[in-house]
Every structure is written in structure tokens, then in C-alpha cells.
């Protein structure tokens, strides 16, 4: 195997649920896989603070269980994909609305749970009682 093939096999094992490459210490690769997931979960917590806070101390556990085997796409996208599969409510729901409305071409709006998020000229405003 070339170096390129071996590096690709190792990355697949570490972030995409690929098989363990020959000759490596399985326990150490497992620890590395876990460390990468924990780092990723911290980065998503920074990009999506309300989403992470809605899980409290369980965030790391819940996010890493979901992200296991899914290659990282960056904290913003990872958090968004997680939120789409785990629709949040409360402040985390508003955070998701602001993100989605902000990405659309202005003027755009979204109304959910008695909160209205409006994108006017690229700036998102939120109306209603934000939890």
C-alpha cells in the first residue's frame, strides 16, 4: 500500500467508521477516535451554544453518539445537521431559526412557536417572546 492509501485508510477508520487498519494498536486508535469526537463536540458547542446548552451536561455524550462514523463537515454544518435530526425548542429553536433565516436571501422570514425571525437586508431580527 502507498502512503496515500494508508493515510486514507487511517482517516476513514478515525472519522468515518472505517475498519481498523492492520498493525495498529486498536485501543489507542479507539482513544484517538474518542478524542476527535470530543474535540468536535466542543467546537459545535461554540458554534451552537443554545443547542448544546439545551442538553446540559449530556451534550458531549449525545452529540458524540450521533457524530460517530459521520465525517466532520465543520462545526456550523455539523451543528445544523444535528439540529435537523433533533428539532430543538426554546432558545435553541430560535438559534436554529436565526441561522436558517440568515442564510436565505433577504427578505426572508420564519415563524415558529410564536416567534418570528425576519431577515431584512441581511440582518436577522427576532420578534416575540424568546424563551
Amino acid at each position: 500500500m502507498t502512503l496515500a492509501e494508508r493515510q486514507a485508510e487511517l482517516v476513514r477508520c478515525l472519522v468515518a467508521g472505517g475498519p481498523m487498519p492492520d498493525g495498529f494498536d486498536a485501543e489507542r486508535l479507539g482513544a484517538t477516535r474518542k478524542a476527535l469526537l470530543r474535540k468536535r463536540s466542543g467546537e459545535v458547542r461554540q458554534a451552537w451554544p443554545a443547542l448544546a446548552a439545551s442538553y446540559g451536561e449530556r451534550w458531549d455524550e449525545v452529540f458524540t453518539a450521533w457524530a460517530e462514523g459521520k465525517p466532520p463537515l465543520g462545526s456550523l454544518i455539523d451543528g445544523h445537521d444535528f439540529a435537523l435530526e433533533h428539532p430543538p425548542s426554546g432558545a435553541a429553536g430560535v438559534e436554529l431559526m436565526v441561522y436558517e433565516v440568515g442564510r436565505r436571501k433577504a427578505p426572508a422570514f420564519q415563524y415558529r412557536h410564536r416567534v418570528l425571525a425576519v431577515n431584512i437586508a441581511g440582518r436577522v431580527r427576532v420578534f416575540g417572546r424568546v424563551p
Binding site: E9, V11, L14, V15, K39, R40, P72
Partner: peptide, 10 residues
Amino acid sequence: AGGLEAGHLL
């Protein structure tokens, strides 16, 4: 490697 980002230094 192989089109995948590891997200950390390997």
C-alpha cells in the same frame, strides 16, 4: 486524506 478531513493533526 482520501477526501476526508480528520479535524485534527494526525
